[in-house]
Design a binder for these strands. Structure first.
Length: 1093
RNA sequence: AGUCUCGUAGCUCAGCUGGUUAGAGCACUACACUGAUAAUGUAGGGGUCGGCGGUUCGAGUCCGCCCGAGACUACCA
């Protein structure tokens, strides 16, 4: 028996199937039953369980799941090891927040040990939620044996990778200006700077400062800055060597003092208005409008300005060495500012470089250890030496200040005759992706990986990767690789993998540890030499690692470099570290590298996708993955980003509970290509569940209902194809076409196309054509070969659809598949996920048949629209329809589906009208595609000429097979093949036309037809009574009908028809009696009584 | 600031290498149908295919500029 149901309840199906999967170990079996020599390698990008899963995670994981399930159903063994990303800033920051501490407190009010314990404890906080969503959404991944990045095994593998890089000479330590987040207390790598939303529009105070030239009276060089807080650190001014500069005589707008200022000629008009030779000081107004000037007194090239000395602008600290000179910089432009750039070597990458090149000193003060440090400390505060602003944050890292430091500095400059002008300036500025605070460019000591040296190889190997969409690989990722900077590996934090490098105090000797065994050896040696009692710590994190002292070959003490390794390295190391390679599982690793497939959000392009690729290329000279799908963002239904602040987030748990996982997944995949952003709208899920799942459910219900009545069981001994009716062969042809297309779509990572095609087949072909037209075959009579063929055909369609949809809708597909299995004599695999994707049989595909049926559908549609126009019910039979013949093949094709059409539109016969006669009115159009090239300019004139032809002209063309016309003196000859002749009308008939197809309908009604229509009307009413009386589909009935004139002919002629249609054993025409009911027919009211017999 | 992608009906999306009535689904309106009924059919309204210009016999499709959205890049003073 096939199970029958009362209604579709997708969430209920989820629950039942989940329980079944658990009990029967289906996930495990889906791996175990596959050949280990046929692997499909998938890498799970580790999520951090530190935050709640969102709906976008459901999206990303649905994509991963689809292709893993598909490949399993292609016979591949797809192991999916889960993983957890456990280190890094997000966790540290949430712990800091919870404990109410800042980075400064770590090691003081809380020990590193306690702090890291807290991190370890926090990192798995939402693991339960993650496990729950994983399960509920039907994402199959091995959560029993996940890799966890904080374990010693994982760390050891990372160390090994680092040591490989070290041995290849790819690791170096450098002092550079780097993006630094005072709020997070760490430097940021370039890919962190490229996280979405890192660059934000902010308004800064920009200032044009006046630098007083030494040895000249009241002469100033103007330099523009958007960071006035860097002015105390100024030690040079840069000009462009070929830029022209002018010296202008005017007054300072604030102090009214007379002055001569120097700026780029190109920038002059941005700051100065009209010339006023007799300008007086009191005519100067404050504000930031251009000011008048007295005259331009000189012009110079940048090269001429080089070497000019100027006075220090703000002399809090006196630099050691050369400073306060004009130097040349090739980065100087005149697109902004004054064409002169203020240089503070401690706070700008260009500044640092150009200062070094010119031997210009940096402004530093000694720190507690006597090492030089900039005038701003690592929390972003001015040091005490900057007396006026000591202790103040240069950006809003602390509590909100009434006036920013930038403002106060400009005020100070203003009063000291050092400010030319200041104004607000809007620009995009990088912000820390975790703390959302502006970053500083700050001089830091860091370890780098020389990724730039392997740039070409990375680009080259990237070209072998199949990116979905391709533009992400070529464009976004490819361009990124082409402009690759060295990877800053250092993080000065606490919770992460310690850098396994020990260095001597003078930095002359160092060692890079590659394994725990090596560490133990080195510790033993150090213990020997130094007489210590050290051992390998049980936990390889800080602070334990920091305490270990090693010894160099020369007997020098070596101390661990305190930095941690960038967490992105952790996740990029997962192909190796998940197997604890190379210390264990060498074979396993080799079988599972590189990955066949990975998928993550597009925001991982510079994150995980990059780190995987970089490590793969650098250490193994290989890609780390062959196919990658990067999905877009999940936005709210208005296209806004989902955020806690806006409260427009979609809760994945309640969504799945309400609509079911399948409808949610199907909606996400079918609505838009995964790489396009998804505007997530719950009403879209409803539509999918109604239209697709509802229709499919109804189709199954219909099948189950009748199959059970007829005791149908499926077996492979099927009615041969050639013995099945046209419509069966048609739907099977369409089905096999579908299999081929869907299989190709999945194989090429096009899930959206796959789902759309499945939906169309289920809705258009299966439900609204095949089942609708075949209903009668299921209803009546005993089991016959035709009926059996119908059951088998429908069974096959449902079974195939269940397998095709399984990757995207794993629950419903299994439910459907297993329900079908209930009625199968020969059992297949117990779950659809253990079954194989069906193989398309090209022998079943019949294009002519598909075309034929398309004609049938279109012709039926035309006839129905004509009936509609004339208000002729489909129940009323009509005598005849006329179809003009387009070509020889056409009549044959239509004739093949004639019976279907006639039954569908309730017409008795089709008459074909050949083109030869003059019954049909026609239209001639040129075949633009082929004629365009031939005719060129005359194309339009010819088209016009054809349009104005009379019916006689067209007949002439059909007879002669050619057409000739004169276009402005030029004779143009066209053959029939270059023209398209289509029927448009049959005068005197009711005609409908659609894209070259024309149908005419005879709407004359004879008494005969009217009687038959009445009979059908009665059948319909009686069926309704059966239904409203809750009779069983198989119950027999007796009918009493009032003897009125308008039904008599119908009953007389069609009594047996009425009886067989309604399962009536008796039909009596009688006088109106007791009980029963009144029927409202077009001709009048009539009494009827229907009883069970 | 630059680079890239995108802009088609109220909404979500198709539209192949340029070819002559620009499509589908949803939503809306009306009428049908109803042994699958949380369906279905038919019809209707709704589009200057973001704007302007160019190439072409012909442009939603190719090119340029502009506007708008998004992503990316950037040390930008």
């Amino acid at each position: 028996m096939f199970k029958e149901f009362k209604g579709l309840n997708l969430p209920q199906i989820d629950k039942e199937i989940l329980e079944y999967w658990d009990n029967a170990q289906i996930f495990q079996k889906s791996i175990d039953q596959r050949d280990s020599n046929q692997p499909f390698v998938f890498y799970e990008g580790p999520p951090s369980a530190n935050g709640m899963p969102g709906i976008h995670h459901v999206m990303a994981r649905a994509i991963k799941d689809i292709f893993c399930r598909f490949q399993t159903m292609k016979g591949k063994r797809v192991e999916r090891k889960g993983g957890w990303d456990t280190h890094g800033l997000p966790i540290e920051l949430s712990v800091e927040k919870e404990l109410g501490i800042t980075k400064e407190d770590i090691g003081k009010s809380i020990s590193v040990e306690e702090y890291n314990d807290k991190c370890r404890e926090t990192v798995m906080r939402y693991k339960d939620k993650w496990d729950a969503i994983t399960k509920q959404m039907g994402y199959w991944v091995d959560l029993e044996n996940p890799y966890v990045t904080y374990t010693n095994e994982y760390i050891e593998s990372v160390w090994w990778l680092i040591s490989q890089l070290y041995q290849k000479g790819l690791l170096y330590k450098g002092y550079t200006i780097q993006p630094y987040s005072p709020a997070a207390g760490t430097g940021l790598s370039s890919h962190e700077l490229n996280m979405p939303n890192a660059y934000q529009e902010i308004t800064d105070i920009s200032a044009v400062a006046q630098f007083k030239v030494k040895g000249e009276v009241n002469t100033f060089i103007l330099a523009w800055t958007t960071t006035p807080w860097t002015l105390p650190s100024n030690t040079a001014l840069a000009v462009g060597k070929d830029i022209r500069y002018v010296k202008v005589h005017t007054f300072n707008r604030y102090t009214k003092e007379e002055c001569f200022v120097i700026l780029a000629k190109d920038r002059f008009s941005s700051y100065f208005s009209e010339q006023q030779p007799d300008l007086q000081p009191d005519q100067m107004k404050a504000g930031n409008q251009p000011i008048p000037y007295i005259e331009i007194v000189g012009e110079y090239s940048g090269r001429e300005l080089e070497g000019i000395h100027y006075e220090q602008l703000l002399s809090y600290v006196i630099p050691e060495g050369k400073a306060f000179e004009v130097i040349l910089g090739d980065f100087v432009t005149t697109s902004d500012g004054t064409g002169i750039v203020h240089i503070s070597p401690t706070f700008g990458a260009d500044d640092f470089k150009v200062a070094k090149l010119n031997g210009i000193a940096a402004l530093t003060v000694p720190d507690v250890n006597g090492n030089p440090m900039p005038l701003v400390d690592k929390q972003g505060k001015f040091v005490s030496q900057v007396t006026d602003f000591a202790g103040r944050y240069v950006k809003d890292y602390g509590q909100k200040e009434e006036r920013s430091v930038d403002t106060d500095i400009t005020i100070k400059l203003k009063t000291e005759n050092k400010l030319f002008v200041s104004e607000k300036y809007v620009h995009s500025y990088p912000h820390c992706w975790r703390t959302d605070k502006p970053i500083l460019y700050y001089p830091l000591d860091s370890w780098f990986i020389k990724t730039s040296s392997l740039k070409e190889r990375m680009v080259q190997l990237n070209q072998t990767i199949n990116w979905k969409p391709a533009s992400t690989g070529e464009g976004r990722f490819g361009k990124w690789l082409e402009n690759l900077q060295d990877w800053n590996l250092s993080r000065s934090r606490y919770w992460g993998i310690p850098l396994p490098i020990w260095r001597s105090a003078d930095a002359k000797e160092e060692i890079c540890i590659q394994s725990i065994a090596q560490l133990k050896m080195e510790i033993d040696r150090a213990n020997d030499v130094l007489g210590l009692q050290q051992s390998v710590p049980a936990d390889l994190h800080r602070p334990y690692m920091d305490e270990i002292i090693l010894v160099s070959a020369n007997g020098e003490k070596l101390f661990r470099e305190l930095d941690l390794i960038d967490v992105w390295f952790d996740s990029g190391a997962m192909p190796y570290a998940q197997w604890h390679y190379p210390f264990e599982n060498k074979e396993k690793f080799e079988q599972n590298f590189p990955a066949d497939f990975i998928a993550e959000g597009v925001d991982q392009t510079r994150g995980w996708f990059y780190t995987l690729h970089a490590i793969g290329v650098m250490v193994f000279d290989s890609v780390a993955f062959k196919n990658v799908v990067s999905n877009g963002l999940v936005l709210d239904k208005n296209g806004q980003k989902m955020s806690k602040r806006l409260g427009n987030g979609i809760d994945p748990f309640s969504t799945i509970e309400k609509y079911g996982a399948d409808a949610t997944r199907w909606y996400m995949i079918s609505n838009a290509q995964p790489w396009d952003n998804l505007k997530f709208d719950l009403s879209g899920i409803e539509e999918v569940s109604r239209k697709f799942f509802g229709t499919l459910y109804n189709t199954y219900s219909f099948f189950a209902l009748y199959a059970n009545i007829d005791q149908f069981k499926w077996s492979s001994a099927e009615v041969p194809l050639e013995k099945r009716p046209e419509i069966d062969r048609w739907v099977l042809s369409e089905l096999n076409t579908l299999i081929h297309l869907v299989d190709t779509d999945y194989a090429t990572y096009e899930p959206t196309n796959a789902t759309r095609k499945i939906m169309e087949f289920v809705d258009e072909n299966l439900s609204n054509w095949y089942v609708r037209l075949c209903r009668r075959r299921f209803w009546k009579g005993e089991m016959s070969e035709d009926k059996l063929a119908a059951y088998q055909t429908l069974y096959t369609c449902l079974n195939v659809v269940s397998r095709l949809m399984a990757p995207v809708a794993p629950f419903f597909a299994d439910w459907l598949y297993r329900n079908l299995q209930e009625g199968a004599l020969e059992k297949g695999p117990e779950s659809v996920h253990l079954a194989l994707i069906p193989v398309s049989d090209s022998g079943i595909i019949d294009h002519a048949l598909e075309e034929r049926m398309a004609y049938a559908q279109r012709i039926s549609s035309l006839v129905l629209s004509l009936r509609k126009k004339e208000k002729l019910k489909v129940r009323q039979p009509l005598q005849k329809m006329l179809i003009p013949i387009l070509n020889d093949n056409f009549e044959k094709q239509v004739e093949g589906v004639k019976d279907l059409i006639l039954a569908e539109v309730n017409v008795k016969e089709i008459e074909y009208v050949s083109g030869a006669g003059n019954i049909i009115q026609k239209k001639v159009k040129p075949d633009f595609k082929s004629l365009g090239k031939k005719l060129g300019k005359n194309m339009k004139a010819v088209a016009d000429a054809l349009a104005s032809l009379s019916q006689e002209d067209i007949q002439q063309i059909e007879k002669s097979g050619s057409f000739e016309t004169n276009i402005s003196g030029e004779i143009i000859q066209l053959t029939k093949e270059e023209l398209e002749i289509v029927p448009v009308d049959i005068p005197g008939w009711l005609v409908a036309t659609d894209a070259g197809l024309t149908v005419a309908l005879d709407i004359q009604l004879s008494d005969e037809l009217i009687a038959e229509g009445m009979a059908r009307e009665l059948v319909n009413r009686i069926q309704n009574i059966r239904k409203s009386s809750d009779f069983n589909v198989t119950d027999k009935i007796a009918i009493q009908l009032e003897a009125l004139d308008f039904v008599k002919p119908a009953v007389k002629k069609y009594a047996s028809y009425i009886c067989s249609e309604t399962l009536a054993e008796k039909l009596d025409v009688v006088e109106k009696g007791d009980g029963g009911e009144m029927l409202d027919l077009p001709e009048g009211e009539i009494w009827i009584k229907v009883t069970l017999s």
